[in-house]
């Protein structure tokens, strides 16, 4: 059974690239969302196994998105991988309780690395 992955980033080109690369492996079903504020609704509908979440988005930060999802009992078991452009991993530790401790990827990331991380997080 294919794993469901929700990709949330304000860059449409990037979400499309992630979707293309993941789906062409044949192992994943991917839905993309380009607004942070739409992510919670999309998660309710799509019920992903994992959310691939940009930290910095204009309307709602990745931190806030994950906080809202955790409030929803049905969605609270969803795993996260955060991804951001402006900070390095060391610095995310201090960014916020919802980001610190979760899996983190700094852009740009290679597809191989992305898939390896997804597999590791889903295997936990």
């Amino acid at each position: 059974m294919k794993k469901r992955i929700l990709v949330v980033d304000d860059e449409p080109a990037l979400t499309r690239m992630v979707k293309l690369n993941l789906e062409r492996t044949g192992n994943y079903e991917v839905r993309t969302e380009n607004q942070g504020s739409m992510a919670v609704q999309a998660a309710r509908e799509f019920k992903p196994d994992l959310i691939f979440l940009d930290v910095m988005m204009p309307d709602m930060s990745g931190d806030e998105v994950s906080a809202q999802l955790k409030e929803d009992e049905e969605l609270s078991q969803i795993k996260f991988i955060f991804m951001t452009a402006i900070v390095t991993k060391d610095e995310t530790e201090s960014m916020g309780s919802n980001i610190g401790g979760n899996e983190f990827l700094a852009k740009p990331v290679k597809t191989d690395e992305l898939i390896a991380t997804i597999e590791r997080v889903l295997g936990e």
């Binding site: 860059e11 080109a13 990037l14 690239m17 992630v18 293309l20 690369n21 062409r24 910095m56 452009a85 402006i86 700094a106 852009k107 740009p108 990331v109 290679k110 597809t111 191989d112």
Partner: peptide, 24 residues
């Protein structure tokens, strides 16, 4: 640096993933 990073790293990510896709 933060501004440049934000504006450059996203395109870099797109290029990287685009290249990954094309290579396949």
């Amino acid at each position: 640096a933060a501004g440049v990073a934000h504006e450059v790293k996203n395109p870099l990510a797109i290029i990287q993933m685009g290249a990954d896709f094309l290579s396949q």
